[in-house]
């Protein structure tokens, strides 16, 4: 005998758990960025390749999960968050994944070697961007607690504070970008010096700096999106 229990059928598959899992997958790629930048610093080709592979590995997994979430989100679902808002959040998480992948792909364009004098600054920028994404992941992880408390009370306040921290981290990351670019381009203006950086190195390093800044901004946009959902 087939029995469809109405109570059991009433509970649709929650998309929030998988969405949090998606963010964790993306973040598992992000946390490996500092190691990649370190490898780029030493220009150890095999080390770079293994770091690239490690970053790329979770990305298709995350994409598959995102596709699954979209496929299993019937319009008949009644959720504490608007369906469109959830899809938008997923979109923003996927952008972080794309951004990370783009960074991992940079060394594919040309054998890459980072200017030695900028190592520390670049590594700091990478760590800063990674920390920003980590904060965004922590915020996404709070969604089940928000649902438990109905998006109100001390829990909501806590998440608000977390979003403020996220914005601060993103701002700090962003502030490092122009300074780093300046340090990168200064030797060129000083044309009399013969040891200007090779063109490709200059280009790719600049791309790396900009991509790291963009990554932090993408992370901040997750906070921007969640904030009005709490305030509603």
């Amino acid at each position: 005998m087939k029995t469809t229990n109405p109570i059991a059928a009433l509970f649709g598959r929650s998309p929030f758990g998988p969405t949090q899992e998606h963010m964790r997958l993306v973040q598992s790629a992000v946390v490996q960025l500092p190691a990649l930048v370190e490898a780029l610093g030493t220009a150890d080709a095999s080390d770079i390749t293994s770091r690239q592979d490690a970053i790329r590995a979770p990305v298709p997994q995350a994409s598959a999960l995102a596709r699954e979430i979209r496929l299993h989100l019937p319009r008949s679902l009644f959720m504490p968050v608007d369906r469109r808002d959830l899809l938008e959040l997923l979109d923003r998480q996927e952008w972080i994944g794309r951004e990370v992948r783009a960074i991992a792909d940079l060394p594919l364009q040309h054998a890459m070697r980072l200017p030695t004098e900028l190592h520390t600054a670049l590594l700091n920028l990478t760590r800063s961007a990674t920390a920003t994404c980590q904060q965004a992941t922590a915020i996404v992880d709070e969604i089940d607690e928000l649902i438990e408390t109905g998006f109100r009370g001390p829990e909501a306040t806590r998440v608000e504070t977390m979003i403020q921290t996220l914005d601060r981290l993103a701002g700090e990351t962003d502030a490092q970008v122009p300074a780093l670019a300046r340090d990168l381009f200064t030797p060129i203006d000083d044309a009399s010096q013969g040891d200007a950086l090779p063109h490709a190195t200059l280009q790719l390093t600049h791309q790396l700096v900009r991509a790291l800044g963009a990554l932090a901004n993408r992370a901040a946009r997750i906070g921007d999106h969640l904030l009005p959902l709490i305030a509603r």
């Binding site: 009433l10 649709g12 679902l77 109905g150």
Partner: peptide, 29 residues
């Protein structure tokens, strides 16, 4: 009793308290 139980679960959901409720059950009922 079943319909009241379904209604009660919906009530909890209305407080933004449940991740996903499948409204097709209401239609089926």
């Amino acid at each position: 009793t079943t319909h009241i139980a379904v209604g009660a679960v919906m009530g909890v959901g209305l407080s933004r308290g449940i991740a996903a409720l499948d409204l097709r059950v209401i239609g089926n009922i």
